[in-house]
Amino acid sequence: MEILLSPEELERVRKNRIEIEKRFQDLEGLEKTLKTLRFGYLFEHRNNLRVRLEEMKKLYMELVEFEGKARKDKEFLMKVRKELSRENKNLRKELEGIRGEDKG
């Protein structure tokens, strides 16, 4: 099996050769190391997920609130449009009546 490293890393391996050979024999030490690294990864991943979920919940609640407001606003704006349309129509008629009287 071949492992490719940078020239600096290869130099470090050369210098620490004896210690590395001991590491290849210390499988208990390797297992503790892998376990610690895995635990660290899982711990960080869990914390990131917690933060992301909290942010998503907050944004979702804002969106729910916005949707509710937009729905109510739509009903209100439609009601005002209907009522204003009727009022403007009556005002136009009233104005036409006055203009008709003036002409007559």
Partner: peptide
Amino acid sequence: IEGLGKRYGFRIEEVLRIILLHGYIDGE
């Protein structure tokens, strides 16, 4: 070594880099 890597979610190349370059830690 391969088995330990698999058990803790590391590729063999990653395990070998730990052995060669990083040394061991003990977090219990």
